[in-house]
């Protein structure tokens, strides 16, 4: 397994995936947005506010999906000390946090006209807010230490324990009575959404996944470069050059964890 996760192999694979990811993302988002905003019908109860769903629900899915990915990578980094897994977890966090924040904000913008409130402390909304805090906590923790390996350990532990929150988000609407309605897509007996409204939902969800792949690759490349810079500073000409040229990474951090 380690052979496949070598950075050089990853970079080759990433270069091969990138054009496909960009193509799929652009096409699905373009068609998805057209369906979402123009071609799909208004809801019989909620009118045009139902169009907020096409952003809100895929963003919620991505928030959960990214968290699971981040926790798995965190576990791999914790147990097998896998540097690439650690990098992937760090790269995923801001993307997942962005989607989770988008889910909360668009939910607010949907709740105000339909429910009559921007926010309530029901189980679904509260557990989703906790998901955002878990992302923020992870990002703060991995950067809180001078020694980046210690940061990874602490962050991965948080990510791993926080995974409990994922099923809580999903089933909160079944376990408690909430203002938020029960699941519409992943439910017993099939989706309770008309097919004309499911298409834009799925297309935008695929588009968001493609976007995640693109940004993930960019951020992993970025992090690999920065680690290489740190290692060169430490193993190469050393501190004097780094200081002289004001390179981005402080010498104290250089090479940490290698």
């Amino acid at each position: 397994m380690h052979r496949f996760a070598k950075p050089s192999v990853f970079l080759k694979l990433a270069s091969a995936i990138m054009p496909w990811a960009i193509g799929i993302t652009v096409v699905t988002l373009a068609v998805g947005l057209y369906l979402a905003l123009v071609a799909s019908p208004a809801d019989y109860q909620q009118g045009d506010t139902v169009r907020i769903m096409y952003i809100h629900v895929p963003a919620a899915w991505m928030g959960l999906f990214c968290y699971v990915g981040m926790a798995i990578c965190g576990a791999m980094s914790l147990i097998w000390k896998h540097p690439l897994a650690d990098i992937a977890a760090r790269a995923t966090a801001p993307i997942g946090a962005t989607f989770t924040a988008l889910c909360l904000i668009t939910g607010s913008l949907w709740g105000e006209p339909m429910w009559g409130t921007w926010w309530v402390w029901d189980a679904r909304l509260t557990s989703m807010l906790i998901l955002l805090f878990l992302y923020l906590g992870y990002m703060a923790l991995v950067n809180a230490f001078d020694d980046s390996e210690r940061g990874s350990k602490a962050g991965s532990a948080l990510a791993l324990v926080g995974v409990i929150n994922v099923p809580i988000v999903k089933f909160s609407v079944d376990w408690w009575n909430t203002l938020h309605q029960p699941a519409s897509v992943a439910r017993m007996g099939g989706p309770s959404i008309d097919p004309s409204m499911l298409w834009p939902l799925f297309l935008i969800a695929i588009g968001f996944t493609g976007y995640y792949v693109i940004v993930l690759i960019v951020r992993v490349r970025l992090e690999l470069n920065e680690r290489r810079i740190r290692a060169l500073q430490l193993g190469g000409v050393g501190q004097s050059v780094a200081d002289q040229h004001h390179l981005a990474v402080p010498a104290k951090q250089a090479g940490a964890g290698e």
């Binding site: 905003l37 963003a59 962005t98 904000i105 693109i214 951020r219 470069n225």
Partner: peptide, 28 residues
């Protein structure tokens, strides 16, 4: 409500992409 949802989503995703690309360029 509808347009600010789509507007905010666009801004957030574009900004995250831009920040990431800029960081990559700088690291290179």
């Amino acid at each position: 409500y509808v347009w600010s949802s789509y507007g905010l989503a666009t801004i957030a995703l574009v900004v995250l992409l831009m920040v990431s690309l800029r960081g990559l360029k700088k690291s290179r």
